[in-house]
Every structure is written in C-alpha cells, then in structure tokens.
Design a protein around this nucleic acid. Structure first.
Length: 342
DNA sequence: CATCCGTGGGT
DNA sequence: TACCCAAGGAT
C-alpha cells in the first residue's frame, strides 16, 4: 500500500479540484445550491442507484415537494408514488421520517454535524458524511462505492470492500487527505472521478487528471482493484398469482405485510407453489412472469380463479383508477402487462 | 457480521 | 443467457 506525504496530499487535492472545477458534473440538479433538503433527497435516491435514473425522479420530487416541510406533511401514498420504480422503498419511508424529525421535532433546524445527521432515519455513515460535507462544510470523507474504488486503486489498498470493517480502514487512511477548505467539493470530485476516468469497467487512466497518483495503474494491476467478494445469486421462488375480476371490472389485490420484501405494497394475491404441476385454476399465460430482486428471483404464473366468498383483511378489489393512484411495484406492473396481452 | 432490501443498464 | 454492477442502510 502507498503512503502519501503532506506534499503529495496537497498536490493531489489541487489537481483533483482543478479538474473538478473544469469538468465536474456541475449541471446535476442537486448541485444547483447547498440546500440540505435537496442534498438529502438526492443522496437517499442515489443509494445503490444510477445518476441517470435518479435525475428524472429528483426533479419530479422537488417540483411536488419543494421543502422539507412539504415532505413532512405529505401523505405517504404521495411520497411512494413519487418513488415508484426506484426500488428499495424503505428509503422513501425513511426519508419522510427524517423530514418529520427535521420539520416537526427540530422545528426546521437542520442537524448540521456528521454525528447528528447519523441519527436521522435512512442516514448512515456515507449519507451523513455527504450531507455534512456538501451542505455544511464539515471535513469528513463520504465513503461510497466510488470512494472505495478510487482510493483502493490510487493507494493499492487490498482490504475487501465488501467487509463492513473495511470502511474504518479507508476512513483512517483517507480522512487526512480530504481538503479541509473544500470538503464537499472534494467528496463530489471523487464521485465524478469514480464514474469517469476511474469507473469500474474499462477505466481511462491514461487521460485521468490524477494518473500520476495511481499506484495500481503504475504497477499494471489496476484491474485487481477494488478487492471485493462476489455476491450470492438470487434464490428461485415460484408463485401463482390469483387473478380475480369482479362484475365492475375491478381486480382483487392483496396488501403485503408491513415487513419484508415490498412491504405494504399491493399486488395480486401470490401463493407459493413447489412446481408447475401444482397450479390451480385457469392458466392465463404461456410463459411465467419472471422478476429478479437483489436476492430472490420470482417465477410467477398468473391463474384465473373464481372469486372468494369472503375477502381477507388485507384484500380488496381495486378499480383501474385506484390502481393508477397507488404506487405499485415493478413486478405487479409486469403481471398486469402479462394478463393484458392474453 | 451477514443478510435483507428493487430496479435498470451493460456485457 | 446469466451475471455484475450502481452516490448504502437497517437489522
């Protein structure tokens, strides 16, 4: 592993920020100003999600709910509808919880330090550091995937970034490198670097503004970094989706439990089946609807069945209009498309 | 600490 | 196709 002296650190900051000032993504909508609300919303949306995907969601969200008070007072149904399709929906629920803390409990006075921001729902070490540095100028590294990748290559850090304890290793190494005069810009410059010249696949280090600091490139081992253990593949689960239409043309839905995957969302009633032979009712499609989550793969066979005599507590017939109002998970949209095609 | 938690894009 | 990845956090 490399060890930079003070002069190298200062040279690196200058080269990085000079490049950032010239070629950084200053056009991103959450970089218009340093409003902590806008920064927080963008950071929650960007967790495990690409910038290109987030931009549209972010602009729509800010148009609908421009202030933290607007978000705190909004119906959760509206917040989820604005989030529909982004995934990891607990982020949306936590974001609104955080907004309520700021707007109501703290009467609009934002927590400004890393430690205080950490106490907000949905705000972990990365997001707390990002908001503290970008919105409030605190000198703290915002260690995300870009940060891990960039500095693992620059300094040849061999620790497995999939291990939680590695965050502490990086923090100790990198904390002295963050520019104390421009911590927010420093963190964002690392992100811009990590998605351009130092991206995951096919990096362009030859033209990188910090090429001369890149030890892994110098030694011809850049593709070995970052060190990261692989994830396990999703486990296959088979279901049949019960499709029931009443005399008004409404469809039977079932609300999922308040915990777990897609918690609280409405879908067709899903029943686990061990094999296709177990399917009951009239099969509606030739091929199953397949949907892949982070850790599960659903194979769903829509079947038409007769209406139940009595609805369960968590069941209801929903009109087309109501279905459009609600945020529905992607897998439910796929099911609707599949039965519509038949 | 390992696992859970969505989705879309790239190869 | 099957797999990997992308500005992580809660439990």
């Amino acid at each position: 592993m490399e060890n930079w002296n003070q002069q190298t650190i200062e040279d690196f900051r200058r080269d990085l920020l000079d490049w950032y000032d010239q070629e950084g993504r200053s056009h991103l909508p959450w970089r218009q100003n340093q409003d902590p609300y806008r920064i927080l919303v963008s950071e929650l949306m960007l967790q495990q999600t690409r910038v290109d995907t987030v931009i549209t969601y972010f602009n729509r969200f800010m148009d609908a709910l421009p202030t933290v008070k607007d978000l705190a007072e909004a119906p959760e149904e509206q917040v989820l509808k604005l989030w529909e399709g982004l995934g990891y929906y607990s982020r949306a629920k936590n974001l609104q919880k955080a907004a309520k803390v700021v707007a109501f409990d703290l009467k609009g006075n934002w927590p400004e330090s890393y430690d205080d921001l950490l106490s907000l729902p949905g705000v972990g070490p990365y997001t707390a550091a990002a908001v503290a540095s970008i919105a409030f100028g605190e000198v703290v590294p915002a260690i995300d995937g870009n940060f891990f990748r960039v500095f693992s290559r620059l300094l040849k850090i061999d620790d497995d970034i999939a291990k939680p304890k590695t965050r502490r290793v990086f923090y100790d190494i990198v904390e002295p490198i963050v520019d104390p005069k421009r911590p927010g810009d420093f963190n964002q410059a690392i992100m811009d670097l990590g998605t351009s010249y130092m991206k995951t696949k096919d990096p362009d280090t030859l033209h990188s503004p910090v090429k001369k600091y890149n030890a892994a490139y110098r030694d011809g081992v850049e593709e070995q970094y970052p060190v990261k253990t692989k994830k396990k593949k999703p486990v296959l689960q088979r279901y049949q989706a019960l499709v029931v239409e009443n005399e008004d043309g409404d469809l039977l839905y079932e609300q999922r439990p308040e915990t777990g995957l897609l918690s609280g969302f409405w879908t067709f009633p899903l029943r686990a089946v061990e094999s296709v032979e177990e399917l009951e009712g009239e099969q509606l499609t030739i091929k199953p609807v397949v949907h892949v989550f982070s850790h599960r793969k659903w194979e769903i066979w829509p079947v038409k069945v007769k209406a139940p005599n009595k609805l369960e507590e968590n069941q209801a017939y929903l009109s087309t209009e109501r279905q459009n109002e609600l945020a529905l998970p992607k897998v439910q949209h796929k099911l609707l498309d599949a039965i519509k095609e038949q």
